[in-house]
Amino acid sequence: MGADRNHDDELLDPSFEHVMDLDIEVADPIEIGETGDGQRRIIEITSGTVSGRVDGEILPGGADYQLYRTERPTELVAKYAFETDDGARVYVENRGIRWAPPAVSERIRDGESVDPAAVYFRSVPEFETADPDLQWLTRSIFVATGVRQPNGVKLAVFRVA
């Protein structure tokens, strides 16, 4: 496996299909405090948009449950929903990490703008829906790249093919 694999193997290299962009607005963090493994924060997801193969609006009521750290990657677990322009609803659970040098990480924590190239921000969103036309969201693995902004997050979501 790995480096020993040759082109005659039946395994296929993955490819990535860009399927949607999410532009998510958030409220100010609720600071829980230092819990022993990092600074626990809850950040309410208030609104936003979805565009691409799916178009719609981010619904209020979700949140990003963060374990913020400066010396190690920040753990992110966001749980929220969106409604498509056709009225279908989709639940999203997105787990990921964000890492930047400590000075950059502190600026992100304080809500300041930073150069996205200085930050590693990747996640693995999972989708649930009752809509038959959107079942393709439940049948694949997705990865996302993210950019943290002072009042929100932008995600580009890719289907692993």
Rank of each mutant, 00 (worst) to 15 (best):
D4I: 02
D4H: 08
R5V: 13
N6C: 06
H7K: 11
H7L: 13
H7C: 07
D8L: 15
D9T: 15
D9Y: 10
E10M: 12
L11D: 13
L11K: 13
D13Q: 10
S15Q: 13
S15P: 03
F16T: 06
D21M: 09
L22E: 08
D23P: 02
D23A: 13
I24K: 06
V26K: 02
A27D: 14
I30F: 09
E31P: 05
I32F: 12
I32L: 14
G33R: 04
E34K: 11
T35C: 07
G36F: 10
D37H: 14
D37L: 13
Q39K: 13
R41N: 06
R41A: 04
I43P: 00
I43Y: 01
I45H: 01
G48F: 04
G48A: 09
S51M: 09
G52P: 05
R53D: 10
D55C: 14
G56A: 12
I58M: 04
P60K: 03
D64W: 02
Y65D: 12
L67R: 14
Y68T: 10
R69Y: 05
P73R: 07
T74S: 15
E75I: 11
V77P: 01
V77K: 13
A78H: 05
K79D: 15
D85R: 09
D85W: 03
D86H: 08
G87N: 05
A88T: 03
A88N: 11
V90N: 03
Y91W: 06
Y91R: 10
V92D: 00
N94V: 02
G96K: 01
I97K: 11
R98P: 05
P101K: 12
P101D: 14
P102C: 12
E106T: 09
R107H: 04
R107I: 03
R107N: 04
I108M: 05
D110C: 04
E112C: 06
E112A: 14
S113A: 15
S113T: 13
S113D: 12
S113K: 13
V114F: 05
V114T: 15
D115M: 08
P116A: 12
P116S: 11
A117D: 12
V119L: 07
Y120F: 10
F121G: 01
R122P: 00
R122V: 02
S123P: 02
P125N: 04
F127L: 03
T129R: 05
P132V: 12
P132E: 15
D133T: 10
L134F: 07
L137H: 00
L137R: 00
S140H: 15
I141M: 14
F142R: 00
V143D: 01
A144E: 01
A144C: 07
R148D: 08
Q149G: 12
Q149I: 10
P150V: 05
N151A: 13
N151Q: 13
K154Q: 14
A156Q: 14
R159K: 13
